[in-house]
Write a protein that binds this DNA or RNA. Structure first.
Lengths: 341, 341
DNA sequence: CTGAAAGCGCTTACAG
DNA sequence: CTGAAAGCGCTTACAG
């Protein structure tokens, strides 16, 4: 019933536990080849699998990395998770995953549990209320870091830890400029929750760039950071702008702060008989891989999501620099959804 | 530097370590309220976080669940992962995630590592070579189960452990029937890797049902279980069938064994000037959420992916039944991509 | 109800 | 190079 133990291996090989340990786990002290062989053989014959929990306790390092996302089924986060996985593997670490369903209580719990499991580092993906972090959470993170834990945040710098930050503000500014350069003159916005930093930055970057061109959005609506959030916001927008199929005239260009919301918006409009880009244009943000084959193809700001995830792990693992903010550029990609006749 | 220890809490509360342990972790032996309060206060003041590694060692249970998927960025797997997460949370377990990039060496490594971490259960999602499992892997799993570890497989029953199996064969048969009933008379297949059980079952279920209707696929091609696999297979198919835009006549109806491949196929055909469903029809399998807004909307077999993930965890956690095979039905959904004029 | 003590499975100075 | 022993931070019979 009980798993094979290092002691079992040592006995069978006729050596001490210490020696078995040194053979099986690349210690600097290398035992003689004859002994080493006996130990390895014994381990193989017995099917020995080291107990990582015991190792962690003895070594004071678990080799565990905690990743917290809002929703693992959201392609934005699953792409980041893929990058995290890849980087973790090359660093020979394991990843503990938590998907919070955008519930802050669950998030707090997850952080506590990861700390309890003594994860070497915790990566928080998915931004929250700007700057604000739960008091308890903050205290816990503080102690965690004092004990050598590393924290890295994606997209929402905290007062502590390191961060990988997409350049939301400037990139959506560039998107606005590109759209204006393409001939668009009327704009509207589908924003995200006002409490979420990423949503606010993207909206502001876009609107401010428009302003520098002497333009102002005709309407702004907002919704959740989800497909359904985009869908319902788009209906309100259509009403506000009195959008009609085949109304003629230059279509208004809408900026949705995420691709997923943009997709929901297009679906909503289609339900109203409106065609993109003929009746209304739209651009998103993120460049979600699964959406590359969408029709019409979506103008957006491409973010290297996998790289972002991988980079977060790398920051978490190089212990020398703390408090680092690493900025990641986005790339404007104009496709059919903003094409003017 | 070192984290606060149970001993620290005990000292501050003026009790023994045993008592502190009993207060902080719902033991059946409940200490007096006065004492309990002192302990809790001390723990709070010190910011005590129990060391899960030490607890695991002492309790011989880690509260860890291992999930292994082919690719966490693939919506099929991320949906399953979401269900796994949800079920794990209600069971108060943590999930260890591995994304293998469809590399069997990585998969073997992940299994070993999960076993080393003494995960209470391991869920393998994503089918592999039918029936075949690496010899070493099998031996390792055997010992793991002997030691009380549970293994659950999604979509590919092994010789051991439990399984959650989508009814691939019968569901694709129903899809074929529905398509025939809808008036389709000419069929073709885009299959997956011949070594993968899921791909084979879906293909066979479809072809056999066609056979019962007195029909045979005109052509079969195959590719990887990915968007690109579907893309390139679709080009070969177009050549084989000599598909031309606006050729007239009833369009051939293609069955792609996954939605993701179907999307790739549609993109490939669009590049050739072919329109779905006018020039060629297509149905997929899975009903990926992110693809619900695709144009044309995709006929498919809907699988309750999240439920499947959740169910796998439940099976893993109810220790009484082993070797259980739980079948999950798929539901045929006909949409625009197979619509006849 | 409470405590002293053994034990979970490893690692790692410290001696030899 | 190798081993005896302490220690990592908890839990849990076993006494009291």
């Amino acid at each position: 019933m009980a798993a094979v133990t290092l002691q079992d291996v040592a006995v069978r090989a006729g050596v001490s536990q210490a020696t078995a340990s040194r053979v099986l786990n690349g210690s600097s002290r290398i035992p003689g080849e004859g002994v080493a062989d006996r130990v390895r053989t014994a381990a193989r014959e017995l099917g020995y699998v080291p107990n990582a929990q015991a190792q962690a306790l003895a070594r004071a390092s678990t080799g565990l990395l905690g990743l917290i996302v809002h929703d693992i089924a959201d392609p934005y986060f699953s792409s980041i998770a893929r990058g995290v996985q890849a980087a973790a593997r090359t660093a020979r670490k394991q990843v503990l995953l938590a998907s919070t369903e955008r519930d802050y209580d669950i998030e707090r719990e997850s952080v506590s549990t990861f700390i309890a499991h003594r994860a070497d580092a915790i990566v928080l993906a998915g931004s929250r209320q700007s700057g604000h972090l739960d008091r308890d959470l903050e205290a816990e993170f503080g102690r965690y870091q004092d004990n050598g834990g590393r924290v890295v945040v994606i997209g929402q710098p905290l007062a502590f830890g390191s961060a990988v930050e997409p350049e939301n503000h400037s990139a959506s500014g560039e998107l606005a400029n590109a759209l204006v350069a393409a001939g668009h003159t009327q704009f509207a916005i589908i924003g995200g929750p006002g409490s979420i930093r990423t949503a606010v930055d993207r909206r502001n970057g876009f609107v401010e760039a428009l302003g520098r061109c002497g333009l102002t959005p005709l309407v702004e609506v907002s919704g959740d950071f989800t497909r359904d959030g985009g869908f319902s916001a788009a209906r309100r927008l259509a009403a506000a702008l009195q959008l009609h199929p085949d109304a003629g005239g230059p279509p208004t260009c809408v900026f949705a702060v995420t691709d997923v919301m943009a997709i929901g918006a297009i679906a909503a409009w289609r339900g109203l008989g409106l065609q993109v880009p003929r009746d209304v244009c739209i651009a998103g943000f993120d460049d979600i891989p699964t959406l590359r084959d969408h029709t019409p193809s979506l103008s957006t700001v491409a973010l290297p999501l996998e790289q972002i995830g991988a980079r977060a792990i790398e920051l978490a693992l190089c212990s020398d620099i703390d408090g680092l903010r690493e900025r990641v550029a986005g790339q404007v990609v104009l496709r059919d959804s903003t094409k003017l006749p």
